[in-house]
Design a protein around this nucleic acid. Sequence first.
DNA 1: AACCAAAGTTGTACTCAGTTCACCTTGTGC
DNA 2: GCACAAGGTGAACTGAGTACAACTTTGGTT
Lengths: 205, 205
Amino acid sequence: MTVGEQPIGLRERKKLETRRAIRAAALELFEREGFDEVSVDRIAAAANVSRTTFFNFFPTKEAVVFDADSEQVAQWQALLASRPADEPLWTALQKVLLAYLEGFREHLVAKQRIKAASRTLGASSRDANDRFWAELTEWAARRDDGDPLTVSLQLGVAQAVLNSAFALWDVDDGAEPLLRLIRRGFAEAGAGFRPAPSRRRTRRT
Amino acid sequence: MTVGEQPIGLRERKKLETRRAIRAAALELFEREGFDEVSVDRIAAAANVSRTTFFNFFPTKEAVVFDADSEQVAQWQALLASRPADEPLWTALQKVLLAYLEGFREHLVAKQRIKAASRTLGASSRDANDRFWAELTEWAARRDDGDPLTVSLQLGVAQAVLNSAFALWDVDDGAEPLLRLIRRGFAEAGAGFRPAPSRRRTRRT
DNA sequence: AACCAAAGTTGTACTCAGTTCACCTTGTGC
DNA sequence: GCACAAGGTGAACTGAGTACAACTTTGGTT
């Protein structure tokens, strides 16, 4: 499936394998018992690896859920590079985010399940895809030489669209409704919220 | 200054005093040495209080920076209650948030300074006023019986406006420029980002 | 004034996340 | 096969947050 197959040696392969083993063990435990109830010690044990090694691969316990691996990162970067330079930022943001999310439906469902079941994870509003926002921000700043507030606002609003969609999403319905919510969100937020003076409902009680 | 002066006993007064002492000690240490460099032990010592007592008042170390005290909460709730029920949500959000922020200029500056100097605080995107967003969300849901996605979006976008403003704000300029940024943010986000087909800049290099 | 229950404070002891470091183990290039 | 570096490990440490039993203070009762 990947493009360049042969160049990586045994070392690299083992490393990736270990990383996957840790993540797999962790996710399984999290799904079964909940994020807060599983200690790093137990994850390490379940993955046949030392605690120290766990922290060699993942900077925090949360990272095991949220950090992307090299494949995902590459996919993401290709996506960013694919948008034409003269496309309006708002349009590009929609396209990029939707394409990305569509590429990771199952992953999303797993993440959301774990997040929903954990007090601390839910609270720390580590959102949709997190580690990418920094990169996305740089990308936006690079391609758009407009007013910094305007750029930052559009990024923030895009994030708000995702947050709202995730918040209203019922995981058990699968990924499709989420994507629908996100598309609607982009449409509504893109149109703005200036109160229509005509449609003034005077509903009471 | 407060409305009901006499009803609270010595107990209550002492409690509030302790809370203030802890917060004052903490903020002073944070400003001088940075959030990450000051341990809860040292804060407690500086406030002449035990570690345990610290955690009786503040659930986490972060809370000492971000949690509002009873006065602030009351002010906030009055503000929410003051908006007419038939005012459009987007308008009400702007008014409420701006009024609130204007009421806490100095506090904002202090918070921002501490946040800017801390790696962990900056990362955990505990934003503008945090503990209020839950309340604000309920308030919005209660007053607006429209589509939940629309309501959630407007809240999210309002938060994006604040985030962007805070991000671009240079603390040393004082609170005024921040408020200007926020007002501009509300205007721009409220107008939406639908790409204007006319104004197509084909700037290159 | 002496007494008492409830509220508030404290020290102790614990769990767990995350860091540091010196020491092994193993893949790779020679 | 050998040397060296990349990677894995155990031990020991710091600091946040929790649990709890013992102590002190407040405010009301007799």
